[in-house]
Design a protein around this nucleic acid. Structure first.
Lengths: 205, 205
DNA sequence: TATAATATACCCACTACTACGGATTTTCTC
DNA sequence: GAGAAAATCCGTAGTAGTGGGTATATTATA
């Protein structure tokens, strides 16, 4: 199995490689610190399995997954992320990846995931399964933001005032206030601090 | 050399262990996901070298370093962190640790650090050296916060209002406002959002 | 085409925080 | 014990944002 690794932390990359090298059936044929470099490689070589982090500089793991699906549909993908935030997880799973494990899972979980994916199965780590099931049991009434709301949230996070945002988007300050209100309601936060934390947790900023 | 590893991400722990096992002179005698478990071990066993992450649940790496220095002064310490924020780095180096490397350094850097520390030297990764030198060249006029200011910043980040904070610390709301003013001045931020970002970057929350 | 979702806009009362200013007490350090 | 740093406290005016509404145009979608 030809494996390609992507993570912005070299030491983790080295560590995983060291773990995988012990398995005779697996072969790490390349690695990259950025999505861009990974894409370049995948365009030119056949890769059976891509194991990628979500947090990457510039292009993130989600964007990478989407592009890899296009340029190399046969390549299977395992997301190896530290994020266990339900919306982000859902967003990533929607793309139809083959496995999702967390960085606080052990290497055994990684090896199990690789074996499962190799056998054509989908592998989710225990914690991820819990998150999914939990979110089914307690659907949190559409916390998802609309595009416009997300856009405005990003501007809020960039330290613009309502006035600034209104000017920038050529809309009334009132409108911004309304969006802001809706964002607060949907994210179930009521302070700016909580909102920024939400944005961080959901990787919106 | 008897080494103990601390990191909240099991997969990284596994990876590093796998790398270190290749070196015949090194022996990983234990590992932990939390500072608390690590301390318990160090109290009962002799550890030559502690390699720890900064980001840990509950007690952070800095607190761990301080305690280890007390209960086992012979134990050398290498910080393995993803943080390259100048103030945090300085704060940690002040404790007199033996090495500081970043997670985006390669495993070679880690091995070099271990060798250097074993030889009684202090090892800082290239990026850390750059940061230190840069901060000497451009000293940013005491962005450091006092204990009280840090305490208040944390409460702000916990979504408490000035009124709440005043009540909690048994001080006047005016005092909180003054601290807040000073915090904004020192951190060179002028919006709550910027402040929260600062707090995140400096791992205060 | 009907319906829902989204984006737009407004009002009013209220609260929290900001931006100036200045001042005193406590604690640490030489 | 002098001096610096930190922590405490206050006033007043102004601004930005909150929370409660309501309402209409536009765009998807079934």
């Amino acid at each position: 199995m030809k494996i390609f690794l992507v993570d912005d932390h070299a030491i983790l990359l080295d560590g995983i490689k060291s773990i995988l090298e012990k398995e005779p059936t697996l072969k790490v044929i390349g690695e990259a610190n950025t999505a861009e470099v990974a894409l370049e490689f995948i365009k030119q070589h056949e890769v059976d399995l891509l194991i990628t982090d979500f947090n990457l500089p510039e292009m993130d793991g989600l964007a990478l997954v989407r592009l890899v699906k296009k340029i190399s549909p046969i390549t299977k993908i395992i997301m190896l992320s530290m994020h266990d935030e339900v919306h982000l997880v859902k967003e990533i799973l929607k793309e139809g990846i083959n496995g999702y494990i967390l960085k606080n899972d052990s290497h055994k979980e990684l090896l199990s995931a690789i074996a499962a994916v190799d056998a054509g199965k989908i592998y989710l780590s225990n914690d991820i399964n819990k998150i999914i099931i939990n979110s089914l049991q307690f659907p949190d009434e559409e916390r998802m933001l609309t595009d416009r709301e997300r856009e405005i949230l990003k501007l809020i996070a960039k330290e613009f005032s309502n006035r600034d945002i209104a000017d920038q988007l050529f809309i009334s300050e009132r409108t911004v206030e309304t969006h802001r209100k809706n964002i607060f309601r949907k994210t179930k936060t009521n302070s700016l601090v909580g909102l920024i934390k939400f944005a961080y947790a959901n990787n919106l900023i």
